[in-house]
Structures are given as structure tokens and as C-alpha cells.
Simulated scan of single mutants.
Amino acid sequence: MIWYIARGAGVMALLMLTVSVTLGIATRQGKTLAGLPRFAVATVHRNASLIGLGLVLTHVLTLLFDSYANLNPIDLLVPFVGSYRTFWLGLGTLAFDLLLIVLITSLNRARLGLRTWRAVHWTAYAIWPIALAHGLGTGTDATQLWMGVLAVGCATAVATAATWRFVT
């Protein structure tokens, strides 16, 4: 049961963080998206980020109680020290650590200033592909057709938004 919760939370986190990254890229352009005001898109971006973070926390915490993965609390915070699929788990840990940094700086955005916050927030461009690689490398469903379609769909959404942003 725990394994299913961890897997489901990981997959749903990928979806929500894909929505967040895609909308974050799109709102940065400064144009309206599908006729929606920028503040509405920014609100969905923020809420998708928070839901994604909650799902990542569920994913991480439930894996502590999974006897197959056999993770220790240190494995969840220090990249590349876990014994279960060390490299791929390490990517997930790295993405989690970076996500926490983005969260902490976002909560302190007013104190840090826009320039500092934006510099740290740019790490989201690295977090997303690292997390995707983690899911495909360590996920037990990575070889399933539905997961491949989902991963390609998520990658296409992010790549399309990034292309639109940097080309226009």
C-alpha cells in the first residue's frame, strides 16, 4: 500500500510541477495566456507549485516507510548516498533539495528582493528535468507505455513553453 501511495504521489507531482513550470515560463513572457489575465495564470502557477510540493513531500515521506526502497532520513536530504539505485535516487534528492531552496526563497521574496529571488528561482529550470530523470531512472513504472506517454507529454509541454518564451 505504501509503495502505491509513493508511486502515485510521484507521478502526480510530475504532472503538477509540469503545469507549474509551463505556466511559470509562459507568464514570464508578459503576455496573456489564452486570454486569461496574467494574475490568474500566476495564481494557478503558484497553486500548482504548492500542490506539487505537497505531493513531493508525500512521495518522499511515504518512501521512508517502504521496506523495499529501505531509505533512511539522510537519503532524502543528501544526494547520492542512498543504497537503492544510488544515482537515480540521488537525482531525486538533488531535485528535492533545490525545490526546498526555491520554496524558502519564494516565501521570503519580499525580504530577498526581486533580483535575488529571480536568480534562485531560475533553478526551477534545472529541477524539472532532474526530477523527470529521477522518475524515469528509479520509477518502477518507467518502462510502462502509459508512463512513457506521460513523460513525453510533460517534456513536450515544457519544451513548447520554453521555445515559445525564448523565440518570441
Rank of each mutant, 00 (worst) to 15 (best):
L17N: 04
A42H: 06
A40C: 05
R85I: 04
T43I: 05
V158Y: 01
I74G: 08
A34V: 09
V78M: 04
A69F: 11
G137D: 12
F39P: 10
L23D: 00
W146P: 05
G52Y: 06
W128F: 15
T140G: 15
T140M: 14
L23N: 01
P129R: 03
C154Y: 03
L91V: 04
V167P: 04
W3H: 11
A159M: 09
T27I: 14
G137P: 06
T156H: 06
A124S: 06
L17E: 05
G54D: 13
D97M: 13
N108S: 12
A6M: 09
L100H: 02
R28W: 07
L17Y: 00
Y125K: 01
W128C: 06
A151P: 01
I51W: 07
I127N: 06
M1A: 12
F87N: 07
A26C: 11
A6P: 04
V78K: 03
I127M: 10
N70A: 14
W164I: 05
Y4V: 07
Q29W: 03
A13W: 02
T18W: 03
A155M: 15
L107V: 10
F166V: 12
V167A: 10
T138M: 13
Y68W: 14
S20W: 02
A40L: 06
G82E: 02
R109Q: 12
W128Y: 12
W122C: 09
A124Q: 04
A34E: 10
A157K: 01
A142H: 04
L136P: 02
W122H: 10
G52A: 14
S106R: 08
G92R: 02
T43D: 11
A42K: 08
S83N: 08
F96K: 07
L114Q: 12
T143V: 13
L103K: 06
M12N: 05
H45I: 02
M16K: 05
P37D: 08
Q144K: 09
A13N: 06
T105W: 08
Y4E: 11
L103C: 05
T22F: 06
I25V: 15
W128G: 02
L99N: 04
R38A: 01
T58C: 14
H134W: 14
A131C: 09
A131K: 05
L98A: 08
A26T: 11
V120G: 00
V120F: 00
F87G: 01
L76N: 01
G24D: 03
A126R: 04
T143W: 14
G30K: 00
D97Q: 10
F80I: 13
A13I: 13
P79H: 04
R46I: 02
P37K: 08
R111F: 13
F65Q: 09
V60R: 03
N108V: 09
A42Q: 12
